[in-house]
Amino acid sequence: LKKVVALYDYMPMNANDLQLRKGDEYFILEESNLPWWRARDKNGQEGYIPSNYVTEAE
Rank of each mutant, 00 (worst) to 15 (best):
T55Q: 12
L20I: 05
Y48A: 05
V4Q: 02
N14A: 10
E46M: 06
S51Q: 08
G44D: 05
V4N: 01
A39S: 03
D24G: 07
K22D: 03
I28Y: 01
P35N: 15
Y53G: 05
W36T: 08
N43E: 12
G47I: 02
L34M: 13
Q19L: 09
L29Y: 06
L29W: 05
E56Q: 11
D17A: 11
N43H: 13
N33C: 12
W37K: 07
E25N: 08
L7Q: 05
K3E: 03
W37P: 05
A39R: 00
S51D: 03
Y26P: 00
S32T: 13
V5H: 05
D9K: 02
E46H: 04
L29N: 02
L1A: 07
S32C: 12
L1H: 09
S51P: 07
D41A: 07
K3D: 01
L34S: 15
T55V: 14
V4P: 00
N16R: 11
R21T: 15
K22I: 07
G47Y: 02
I49Y: 01
Y8N: 07
Y10K: 04
I49G: 01
R38P: 08
V5A: 03
P12E: 03
M13F: 09
N33F: 09
Y48Q: 07
I49T: 00
N33D: 15
Q19I: 08
R21W: 13
A57D: 09
W37A: 06
Y53A: 09
Y10C: 04
N16A: 12
W37G: 02
I28H: 00
I28Q: 02
P50I: 05
D24L: 08
V5D: 01
V5W: 11
G23D: 07
W37V: 15
E25F: 15
D9P: 04
L20T: 02
G47T: 01
M11E: 14
Y53T: 03
G47E: 00
Y26R: 00
D9V: 02
E56P: 14
M11V: 13
E31K: 09
I28E: 00
E31C: 11
D9M: 03
R38A: 04
Y8S: 07
S51T: 06
K22P: 03
E46V: 09
E25A: 08
K42D: 06
Y8T: 06
V5F: 10
E31A: 12
N14C: 11
A15Q: 12
L29P: 02
A15P: 14
R21Q: 10
N14V: 06
Y48W: 15
P12G: 06
E56K: 10
D24I: 05
F27L: 11
V54C: 05
W37L: 14
F27H: 08
E31Y: 12
L20V: 04
A15I: 12
M11T: 14
D17I: 08
G47D: 01
K42M: 14
P35R: 15
A57W: 13
V4A: 04
R40F: 06
M13Y: 08
R38L: 15
W36Y: 15
L1R: 06
V4S: 02
P12F: 02
Y48I: 07
Y48N: 09
Y8D: 07
N33V: 10
D9F: 03
N43I: 07
E58P: 14
N33Y: 10
L18I: 05
D17N: 10
E30V: 07
V54E: 02
K2I: 08
N52R: 11
Y10S: 03
N43Y: 14
E46T: 08
D41T: 05
K3P: 04
N43L: 12
A39G: 05
K3M: 09
L20N: 00
G44M: 05
L29M: 08
M13H: 11
K22A: 13
P35G: 15
K2E: 03
L1I: 11
E25G: 05
L29K: 03
E58L: 14
I28G: 01
G44Q: 05
L7D: 03
K3I: 13
G44L: 05
D24V: 07
L18M: 07
A39P: 01
I28W: 00
P12M: 03
Y48M: 14
D17E: 15
T55K: 13
A57T: 12
R40D: 02
G23Y: 05
Y10M: 04
W37Q: 06
Y53R: 05
R38C: 09
V4M: 07
E31Q: 13
V54I: 07
K3A: 05
K3F: 06
V54W: 02
R40H: 04
N33T: 14
M11Q: 13
V4Y: 09
G23Q: 03
E31F: 12
I49N: 00
S32V: 09
N14K: 12
K22T: 08
D24W: 14
P35A: 15
R38M: 10
A15D: 13
Q19K: 09
G44R: 04
K42N: 09
Y26W: 00
K2M: 07
W36C: 10
A39N: 01
I49E: 00
E56F: 13
D9R: 02
K2R: 13
